[in-house]
Simulated scan of single mutants.
Amino acid sequence: MRLVVGYLATPGGADAVALGVRLARTLGAELDLCMVLPPDRAVPARLTVGDYEDLLAQQAKQWLSEASVPDDIVSTSHVTFCESFSEGLIQEVARLEADGIVVGGSGGGLAASFTLGSVVNELLHSSPVPVTVAPRGSRHSDVERIREVTCAIGERAGADLLLRTAVRFSKAAGTPLRLVSLVALDPVFGQLRGDAEAVRQRALDHAQRTLEAAKAELPEKIPVTSTVVEGNSVEDAVAKLDWRDGDLIMVGSSRLSAPRRLFLGSTAAKMLRVLDVPMMVVPRDQLDVTQLT
């Protein structure tokens, strides 16, 4: 398994590397640290295009050599040129046949721990593989592995694929799995909001079904729990959950996404505002990240 880390010589880049290392150690994956540079725009007058790109590549290699990757993780550094950072990363994913992308969330945009810049936003709306976003400050964590996977499951199209992805991830990593039904936020449940008891019962039935499906696929030694969370808003519901350093939340791509492409839905975007744990967004028909034994 290979994970592409979108690297910049910034705190956000260091956050991405730290999370990439955590995921790699958890899943037994290799890391590909990729730095995407602009091509020959604004070439200095005294340099040819080739000289300019060579100088940039040399500087990039120096920055990559300073990235903090422990000796127990197999990693390779790559420098590529592309007009778009996100497009360059996606091209590297295809070239390397990687299973996922890891990026840092800091850099202008949403508030709180995740401040998504234009690059991350583009990836979350176009990537053909899962994208995991590191919250600001991940580089300061001492946690070496993923502690628990939380999977936000609704009844929308693609929920079954997301559940299977989370189950396979937990099985490969040996981590506990927590299934969360944000029922108050789901349009299907929302149709019943006039009857609070009907909403609650449907939520409980749904949670029980997903729990039984997960347990059927996971070894007995891997704990699986299921919970129902209600709230007046997405942020309110997510904030009611207990989170610890080393947790990871997994969500599905919006139903608006094209096949094998991500599209960050409004619910996931709102969740990012109150979360301080990494979020993995999975394309609605993408399961490669979990094809492990």
Score class of each variant (00 low, 15 high):
residue 224 V to R: 01
residue 36 V to P: 00
residue 109 G to T: 08
residue 184 A to W: 02
residue 67 A to F: 01
residue 209 R to Y: 10
residue 105 G to V: 06
residue 49 V to L: 07
residue 179 L to P: 00
residue 246 G to W: 00
residue 241 L to S: 06
residue 223 P to N: 07
residue 162 L to V: 03
residue 52 Y to N: 04
residue 194 G to D: 14
residue 141 S to Y: 05
residue 157 A to Q: 12
residue 159 A to I: 03
residue 213 A to E: 14
residue 122 E to V: 12
residue 63 W to R: 11
residue 51 D to Q: 15
residue 215 K to E: 14
residue 132 T to F: 09
residue 91 Q to G: 06
residue 157 A to Y: 13
residue 169 F to W: 07
residue 117 G to A: 06
residue 278 P to F: 07
residue 278 P to R: 05
residue 95 R to E: 14
residue 159 A to W: 02
residue 56 L to V: 02
residue 75 S to P: 11
residue 144 E to V: 09
residue 82 C to N: 15
residue 59 Q to W: 12
residue 132 T to W: 07
residue 157 A to P: 02
residue 84 S to A: 09
residue 213 A to I: 09
residue 22 R to I: 01
residue 145 R to H: 14
residue 179 L to C: 01
residue 221 K to E: 15
residue 50 G to H: 07
residue 12 G to C: 08
residue 244 R to Y: 10
residue 278 P to C: 02
residue 114 F to W: 08
residue 97 E to V: 15
residue 82 C to S: 15
residue 119 V to P: 03
residue 256 L to S: 13
residue 129 V to Y: 02
residue 164 R to H: 14
residue 256 L to G: 12
residue 263 F to I: 06
residue 90 I to T: 09
residue 56 L to C: 05
residue 230 E to G: 10
residue 216 A to C: 04
residue 6 G to T: 00
residue 9 A to W: 02
residue 5 V to Y: 01
residue 61 K to G: 08
residue 234 V to Q: 08
residue 205 D to Y: 09
residue 20 G to T: 11
residue 290 T to P: 06
residue 287 L to D: 15
residue 239 A to I: 01
residue 14 A to F: 04
residue 179 L to F: 04
residue 190 G to E: 10
residue 104 G to M: 01
residue 169 F to S: 03
residue 221 K to D: 14
residue 112 A to M: 13
residue 86 S to L: 09
residue 270 K to C: 05
residue 5 V to F: 00
residue 37 L to C: 09
residue 44 P to K: 08
residue 121 N to Y: 10
residue 191 Q to K: 11
residue 257 S to N: 03
residue 15 D to P: 12
residue 85 F to M: 06
residue 38 P to H: 03
residue 24 A to D: 00
residue 96 L to Y: 08
residue 110 L to Q: 15
residue 33 L to F: 06
residue 196 A to V: 13
residue 54 D to R: 15
residue 160 D to H: 12
residue 67 A to V: 01
residue 112 A to L: 10
residue 104 G to N: 11
residue 164 R to N: 11
residue 64 L to G: 01
residue 280 M to N: 04
residue 55 L to E: 10
residue 278 P to D: 04
residue 120 V to K: 03
residue 181 S to D: 10
residue 277 V to F: 04
residue 3 L to H: 02
residue 128 P to F: 02
residue 80 T to D: 11
residue 274 V to C: 04
residue 218 L to C: 08
residue 194 G to F: 11
residue 146 I to N: 00
residue 9 A to D: 15
residue 174 G to F: 01
residue 261 R to W: 03
residue 203 A to Y: 07
residue 150 T to Q: 13
residue 182 L to I: 07
residue 70 P to T: 04
residue 200 R to V: 09
residue 79 V to P: 08
residue 150 T to A: 11
residue 40 D to H: 14
residue 131 V to E: 04
